[in-house]
Computed example of a mutant assay.
Amino acid sequence: MKTKLSFSLILALTFIFGVKMYGQSEPANDNVETVVDKLPKLSNSSRNFNKYIAKHIKYPTNAKLRGVEGDVWVSFIISSTGVVKDVKVDKSVDPVLDEAVVDFVKQTGPWKPGKKDGHEVNTQMMVPVNFTLNKDERFLANKLKEFNILENPPLFVVDNKMVEGYLELEDYNVKSIRVLKGSKATALYGDKGKNGVVVMTTKRGTPPVY
């Protein structure tokens, strides 16, 4: 009888304190680790995330035309199941760039989660995303500062071809840029030139993308 009573008592104690006794070796599901043995990694890329985002993120044309540059610092969590969560900007440069970074990070995946002590864990990540204009893009942005780019964008004419709306800037070389305003612009391009005209000529072999 005593043996049965003792055995029952042991079972009761194990049931009551089992979570506390054995739970210490298993990390809680909602814990977020800042230091891990193995960082999360994109399943479909051999590059680290800094290089991956630098190669694939699109530099918003709106920001390029306004000459906006800088590093956007973004933080996010890769869950223990490889899901991107809680994406937010920790250091802002410009709302347009911030939005581009957040949207890009949210769409990444699937991820291989980070590991600590052999377990897959929720991992806190933070990376800088650099936006830098090349020489020609910076030169064009400076030329456009006299225009109201956002509300009344000028007409772009590239290699004698009119481009409706924003010009999609790529890393090509510009041979020359000429700015026309007022009566000179409308005399050559009619009503389309009422907000001004930016006439661009590219170097041979490096055409722009419209």
Rank of each mutant, 00 (worst) to 15 (best):
T206S: 15
T206I: 08
S25E: 10
L97K: 11
L42G: 11
L65A: 12
V198G: 02
Y52Q: 04
V101D: 07
S183Y: 08
Y166N: 14
M162R: 15
V72T: 04
S176Y: 03
K135P: 00
P208L: 14
Q24D: 03
V121C: 02
N160A: 13
Y22T: 14
D71F: 10
N173E: 14
L97I: 12
E99C: 07
F147E: 04
V74F: 01
Y172A: 14
A54F: 06
T81K: 12
G205L: 12
R138W: 11
V179C: 01
K161D: 13
P60D: 01
T34A: 02
D136G: 01
V127W: 11
M1D: 14
K161A: 13
V83F: 05
G109F: 06
K203F: 14
L5H: 10
G67W: 13
D94L: 03
S80Y: 10
P40A: 02
E168T: 05
D159T: 09
G114A: 00
N50L: 10
S43A: 08
L144P: 05
D159M: 13
E99F: 13
G114C: 01
E33T: 00
P128F: 12
N130Y: 07
I57D: 01
N142Y: 06
S176D: 11
K58A: 09
I149C: 04
F15H: 09
S43Y: 10
L133C: 11
M21L: 15
D30K: 10
N122S: 11
V197M: 08
V93M: 04
V84C: 14
I149W: 05
S92V: 06
I77S: 03
L180Q: 01
V101E: 10
M200R: 00
D136W: 04
G165F: 05
T3D: 11
W111L: 05
K85L: 03
G182K: 04
N122Q: 09
A185K: 00
E120M: 06
D117P: 00
T123L: 00
R47L: 15
Q107W: 04
Y210N: 13
F49L: 15
S79W: 00
P110E: 15
S43E: 07
F131K: 05
I77N: 03
T34W: 00
K115C: 01
V84W: 12
L140V: 04
K55S: 14
F7Q: 04
G165M: 04
T206Q: 15
